[in-house]
Design a binder for these strands. Structure first.
Length: 825
RNA sequence: GCCCGAGUGGCGAAAUAGGUAGACGCAAGGGACUUAAAAUCCCUCGGUCGUAAGGCUGUGCCGGUUCGAGUCCGGCCUCGGGCACCA
């Protein structure tokens, strides 16, 4: 054993052992309970960043811990390899996206291996490989035949100068990031998946996910946004019926105008001879597609000149084209009630439209008009100015008005979702080709199974941000599978969320080249523990849940949910904000590994903060983590030479220390189950501190026994976190027969935890005044008497009379006392 | 704009079910060892008053519940994250 801790050497030795023993190769062995632990696979951006190191260390700690507990663990790794950065890099450096991506994968794989993660590398996946995406194409054609995939138009950001579609991140202040041209919104035909058909199930199943953080479930719930309401048909003069959706039928009597999206057919119909309306529609085309931009922009509109009739009062209402109404949500038209809706209110004030209150809060007695002079009232209350409904509570009016509308045949109860169908088309090169053929005779025809995969050509030169696929005759030209005539291939590719929606299942059948999935998914799925960033709380996790249900309905998997338990790790911060290239505050993990080794990197990540919280980067604290490993090494070194004691039990003079150690170990074992790895490390540090003190005593059979017992605990507890150093020290000290990863998980000795006396804090009126030591099984009266006898306690009770005594067993005793002296002024 | 989350020493944090606030570590200050430095080890370390014993005060702010609140409830403030073409 080396005098000093030399991380690189230690880590090489441990990794060679795991490699030779094939320690992490997972087989479908049913003799042990399975545990599928999955970390979100990375985008191969070039180098690992701190977020990856944190994510993958967490997954590895959980995997290794479960393995030691006797589970048959599967922990795979792969690459989310399609995406925009590869194209940007290609434009910048003149390297083909494929070449760039494969080089990145190769470098990052080495980094992961250097960190000692217990992956089954034989199951590695790269989503840009045809062996992977062919099954996605295959599955998509199944969905198309079932009617779950369809084509419709949807808005995109369009740069008129570059003649290309831009991602939201490529639009900066409404302009193209490359040429600074003002970006337009354009409607183009795209492919969609009918996720809305699964909206109810996706919502309902959230309550079957107790292993998910509450907040992720809440975010998804809000995202799905189920709302119950009524569709109301307004008759519009010279246009016909206009359907609006509202969740507030109780406010119907307060409607003072209607608003439709600028691209609504009604608005188009009304543009004839109205230049202002045309101009407005063109302006709206310039607005961005992101919700944040949409919600914060100024609410504006133009009168279409058309007039609608109120279905109950017969009143004439103006119809506006407005920029705050989305064509893609609901009916693309709303009824506006400025008195009871903030947005309608702001709009009405701007265009001097009437505000007519119909609901008053119960505690409001004044003039209803006065209620809504400054802002809308959005709460419940009693109906006013509402004809037959006046005087009713608004909740009741909601039902009554709905009934009346239904009876008159102008209203229908409906459930709407905020969730929209998933647009999966991307007008980009570096993605999975959408397996569809456009035939001039037969229309859209899916590529037959025998012609899959539709391969993405990798030998391309990207000069513009536009997709090179349109300019490749070898890709573009196809033969129609139905009529055999000349046809064209679809040049759009899939949203990369498609690949990441089913990779967790493919790991189980990674080598199958004649089916998407096979019986092995039945052995491993669902994923027992999924770990990734909170930034994926909605989209990725919702799409993956959706895909799991699609796979189930195709008979490919059996369960309804893919991830039993979810851990969302916090971000890695530097100087209080997220590490990012644009902020220039990144720290390269490679430098950390080179200087201190993988174990220090892993230890720091686990110790600095609990998993769910953000983690503040700190160079000095990293050095501190390294220092602990050196102390651990030195401690083991000093025990190495001591003769092994014959008996394991500590003698009487060590029962107190042994008790303390067992309490700490007990704590650490329970903290593992809570995933509080930072306090596991803290407990291990405390044990090491105790053992170091013990080492100062002259060595005895008892002290050496306890040193070996304590170290055996610490090494096993730390093995999942710092696997290399613990592997080597475990072997050197001969603490078990095999390697530490095969050692049994620590169990404390209940006898060591038993205590004869207990320390109780004594409070007077809730303030700490003293401390007493009493036998463990003392009764309340005994404790009370001892507490009152305590000197400090009796001093603070002078001039007071005890009114009540609260005894919390094993914890404290609180004496409640009132001042008896009444002579105070 | 909407949704979600977080605020505890100089810093990262701990406090499991409402019961000793600050475990563990970092930084800082003092000391030991050394020709010197590095490394290592020992001591101090929320604020404040006090020579000390000890007291007062303290978990973003205001209020409430309770014998007792960092923890529960109501109302604010600040910061961070997500918002459908970044992944």
């Amino acid at each position: 054993m080396d005098e000093r801790y030399m991380a690189e050497q230690v880590e090489r030795e441990a990794q060679r052992f795991w490699e030779q023993a094939q320690s992490f190769r997972a087989t479908e062995d049913s003799s042990r309970p399975k545990f599928y632990c999955l970390s979100m696979f990375p985008y191969p951006s070039g180098r690992l960043h701190m977020g990856h190191v944190r994510n993958y260390t967490l997954g590895d700690v959980i995997s290794r811990c479960r393995r030691m507990q006797g589970f048959n663990v599967l922990q795979p790794m792969g690459w989310d390899a399609f995406g925009l950065p590869a194209e940007n890099a290609a434009v910048q450096n003149g390297v083909a996206p494929a070449q760039w991506t494969y080089a990145n994968i190769s470098y990052m794989r080495d980094q992961l291996k250097r960190l000692g993660f217990a992956y089954d590398w034989s199951r590695e996946i790269a989503t840009c490989r045809p062996e992977y995406y062919r099954w996605e194409q295959w599955f998509f054609t199944r969905l198309y035949r079932k009617g779950l995939a369809y084509r419709a138009t949807a808005p995109v950001n369009w740069c008129p100068k570059d003649q290309t579609v831009l991602a939201n991140e490529q639009v900066i202040d409404g302009r193209c990031w490359r040429c600074d041209t003002v970006v337009e919104r354009r409607e183009i035909p795209q492919w969609f998946l009918r996720i809305t058909q699964y909206a109810d199930e996706l919502l309902a199943d959230l309550s079957n996910l107790p292993g998910w953080p509450e907040r992720v479930a809440t975010m998804q719930k809000n995202w799905i946004g189920r709302s119950e309401g009524v569709e109301i048909r307004f008759e519009v003069n010279g246009y016909g019926p206009l359907t609006v959706f509202t969740t507030r039928p109780d406010t119907l009597m307060g409607v003072t105008y209607l608003a439709v999206a600028a691209e609504h057919p009604l608005a188009t119909a009304a543009t004839a001879g109205r230049a202002e309306l045309l101009r407005f529609r063109d302006e709206c085309r310039l607005s961005q597609t992101a919700e944040a931009a949409f919600e914060t922009m100024e609410k504006r509109g133009v009168d279409t000149g058309l007039r609608a009739t109120h279905p109950l009062t017969g009143a004439e209402l103006p119809v506006y084209a407005a920029n705050f109404v989305l064509m893609s949500y609901g009916e693309g038209a709303v009824m506006a009630v400025p008195a009871h809706d903030e947005r309608d209110f702001a709009f009405a004030r701007r265009y001097a439209l009437p505000v007519s209150p119909v609901i008053m809060p119960l505690d409001f007695a004044g003039d209803p008009e006065a209620l809504v002079t400054d802002a809308a009232y959005t709460g419940p209350g009693r109906m006013v100015n509402s004809g037959a409904f006046t005087g009713l509570p608004s909740e009741e009016a909601r039902a009554r008005i709905t009934e009346v509308l239904e009876r008159k045949g102008v209203g229908t109860r409906r459930v709407h979702f905020r969730l929209r169908d998933w647009g999966v088309s991307r007008q980009r090169y570096w993605g999975t080709p959408i397996p569809m053929i456009h035939c001039p005779h037969c229309g859209i025809v899916p590529v037959p199974d025998r012609d899959l995969p539709v391969r993405l050509p990798e030998d391309v030169v990207i000069t513009q941000s536009a997709s090179p696929l349109k300019g490749r005759p070898d890709f573009l030209h196809a033969t129609c599978p139905d009529c055999g005539g000349p046809a064209e291939r679809e040049t759009d590719t899939f949203d990369t969320f498609m690949e990441s929606s089913w990779y967790y299942a493919r790991y189980c059948a990674q080598d199958n080249d004649h089916a998407m999935l096979d019986a092995r998914v039945g052995h491993w799925l669902p994923v027992d523990q999924y770990i990734g960033g909170i930034e994926h709380a909605i989209l990725h996790l919702l799409y993956a849940r959706f895909f799991n249900k699609l796979l189930r309905d195709e008979g490919l998997v059996s369960g309804g949910e893919p991830f039993v338990r979810l851990l969302t790790q916090g971000m890695v911060l530097k100087d209080g904000s997220k590490m990012s290239k644009s902020k220039g505050n990144t720290v390269d993990p490679q430098a950390l590994i080179d200087q201190y080794g993988a174990d220090t990197a892993r230890l720091f990540m686990m110790f600095a903060a609990p998993p769910e919280q953000s983690l503040e980067w700190n160079d000095e604290a990293v050095a501190g983590a390294h220092r602990f490993l050196k102390r651990l090494w030195a401690l083991a070194k000093s025990i190495e030479g001591l003769p092994k004691p014959a008996t394991k039990t500590a003698s009487a003079d060590h029962t107190a220390v042994r008790g303390q150690i067992h309490i700490l170990v007990d704590q650490a074992v329970r903290d593992y189950e809570r995933y509080h790895f930072n306090t596991v490390v803290a407990a291990c540090m405390s044990v090491v501190n105790l053992l170091q003190k013990l080492l100062e005593e002259p060595a005895s059979e008892s002290s050496v026994g306890l040193l070996r017992e304590g170290l055996s605990f610490v090494l096993r507890l730390l093995a999942p976190i710092v696997p290399h150093i613990t592997h080597v020290l475990w072997g050197t000290l001969g603490l078990g027969d095999g390697a530490v990863i095969d050692a049994p998980w620590p169990e404390v000795d209940p006898a060591a935890l038993r205590q004869d006396v207990v320390r109780l804090v004594v409070q007077v009126n809730g303030k700490r005044r003293g401390e007493i030591v009493v036998p463990v099984h003392s009764d309340t009266a005994e404790i009370e008497e001892r507490a009152l006898r305590d000197e400090a306690v009796s001093r603070s009770l002078e001039g007071k009379s005890v009114t009540k005594v609260v005894v919390v067993p094993g914890r404290l005793i609180n004496i409640v006392a009132a001042t008896t002296t009444t002579t105070l002024p």
